[in-house]
Design a protein around this nucleic acid. Structure first.
Lengths: 344, 344
DNA sequence: GTGAAAGCGCTAACAC
DNA sequence: GTGTTAGCGCTTTCAC
């Protein structure tokens, strides 16, 4: 790579002048010199050495991003949103992928291992003088191993820290649960079965609260027998659909698309055609919900927006007292529920 | 951030000694001093300024990765493979995401726009002294806008450059087509319909060659009426399944999972149960193939391996004369074909 | 307008 | 063993 020194020599000027011209300082040199310097720079395909500049300026214009695992379906979209915001605000995104699933598989009990990995990555980013760090989780849960004060703004995306430590940006699960339930109610459904995720899951708790809220607002009695718990798998959806159908549910609301697909399968096999004899809703807008038949109604997660918002937060670094920022999911109604309305 | 100078002052030694100790140079200081320096460094939470070090050493231990679009389904897995290899060899991965789909949507005709974007990213990486660049494409096709000589090793992942310019790592589409066809033949099928992608697609050409090869090796007559062309969409699969079933095909081989799912839908609706009355194979191992019913047989793409191999190529930088390295797909046979065997 | 020179934090060659 | 010093490429201050 060509350096500023070479250009200076060729143009018979000092490095200072070259630097000034190339950085567009007004009146740094005569029009003639300016043209010459610019020409030589272009000819040598000159690009300023980023390290030298950053070292000198003591800052990097970089935002660090730590992902738990880039291959988990929602992470790339969040990262994309961060990337977009960074570009817009003139920052560079530095990605540190921890590859959790490769290191720990599904074993989320090894807190120490995760803490070590995470601490390393934070140090690594700090050594690169990042001006903010965004931690991208795989699913919404409390992250306990990030130090309180790390010297730069820190934000959680799609997860959250121990209360009050750092702000976080999440989707509004409760509102999503509320809106889907409301929609089903507006179609005339009164007995809406719910296939939750595991009981302790953040997503389960919030979406269920939303479900209950919608029932309450519509003066529908909450029946605990219509609420069952699965493990997010298609098989669980299949199995639990039976339980709910025995309760005479006319609509099923699964808390993710995979379970919704499983439930749809069970229904079809038992002469309940999804979208015709029973309404089905999923959540997440996974690829499968769009490609199965009928298409599964679902809620699109605001992943891009979460990423974008996180980047804005660390870049603008407004003193933000809210520790949770909730972004709305978008209801995406499709064949599995759209046209099956009940008359009262 | 603490600097080496502060540590030197506190430990009453020179910066050189601190540097040597912290970099683990044997016999750089007395055991006593070593301990003291280490302790102070830890206490100040010292991490060496990466820019200063890289500037001084004139190298970065970084590999640059340019992705066309990180949100396209296969890209994160390729990036994951690159990441893994980088970590293993002690390199850092620098990601430049061009966000093609955001910039050009599906319009792949704006070559100039793409060239500009790509050239910028290459310069940007070069300014960071990367020691190699990997270009990750969205689908296999010729990329025409990368300069021949960019000063560092350059490799294409999941796409390829103008002949002879830079090496590329791809999956073995032809072998995939061959193996799937062979598998169907071994189940007794003799009339195997093919739903290709667009005629000019690299994937179409290669997979079709594999298909023909398997037929030939098994002395089965190639019937052009059994080969139809779609646009990778589920709808195309649905539509073309009809054409092929009229040719009395006992098995359908779609060149991607989405078309396979569409084909399966058409068959089911016309009393041909996939996996029972007709065999169906897809390609890609997209999420949907695993979650539909029956599960669709398919071929898993060696995405991680492609990434890993690319990283190895640029890191080891062996003089590589082969311009295409092909990695095998893994046949994943499932319910849509597994048990439907024909007696001769 | 232009240039000399200092210095960002670090490493490495060399002297003691 | 330990320290002195030069210099990586750049920006910036201050003279001229």
């Amino acid at each position: 790579m060509a350096t500023i020194k070479e250009i200076a020599k060729l143009a018979h000027v000092s490095t200072a002048t070259v630097s000034n011209v190339l950085n567009g300082k007004a009146g740094a040199a005569s029009a003639e010199k300016t043209a010459e310097i610019t020409a030589i720079a272009r000819q040598l395909n000159y690009t300023a050495n980023v390290f030298a500049r950053r070292l000198q300026q003591g800052k990097s214009d970089c935002i660090g991003v730590i992902t738990e695992d880039l291959t988990v379906f929602n992470t790339p979209y969040i990262v994309d949103g961060i990337d977009a915001a960074c570009k817009e605000y003139g920052y560079e995104m530095l990605l540190e992928n921890m590859r959790f699933f490769k290191h720990f598989d599904i074993d989320f009990s090894d807190v120490e291992g995760r803490r070590t990995l995470c601490t390393e990555r934070i140090s690594s980013l700090l050594a690169k003088q990042v001006e903010g760090i965004i931690y991208v989780g795989n699913h919404c849960r409390e992250i306990s191993y990030v130090p309180e004060d790390i010297g730069v703004p820190f934000v959680y995306a799609y997860c959250y820290g121990t209360k009050g430590s750092h702000p976080s940006v999440l989707m509004d699960d409760e509102n999503g649960g509320y809106e889907i339930t409301k929609r089903l109610i507006s179609h005339g459904h009164r007995t809406i079965g719910v296939i939750c995720g595991p009981f302790s899951s953040y997503h389960t708790q919030k979406r269920l609260t939303g479900y209950q809220g919608a029932l309450f607002d519509n003066r529908i009695f909450y029946n605990a027998k219509c609420v069952v718990y699965g493990d997010w798998s298609k098989e669980a959806g299949y199995r639990l659909a039976e339980t709910l159908c025995k309760q005479d549910c006319t609509a099923l609301f699964a808390f993710n698309d995979l379970m919704a697909v499983g439930a749809a399968d069970w229904c079809r096999e038992h002469n309940l055609v999804p979208g015709v004899d029973i309404a089905i809703f999923g959540f997440d807008d996974r690829e499968v919900s769009r490609y199965c038949t009928p298409q599964i109604s679902t809620a699109t997660l605001p992943l891009y927006d979460i990423g974008y918002m996180c980047a804005q937060l660390v870049i603008k670094h407004e003193e933000n007292t809210k520790d949770h920022i909730l972004l709305p999911c978008r209801i995406q109604e499709r064949g599995s529920s759209e046209f099956y309305h009940l008359k009262d």
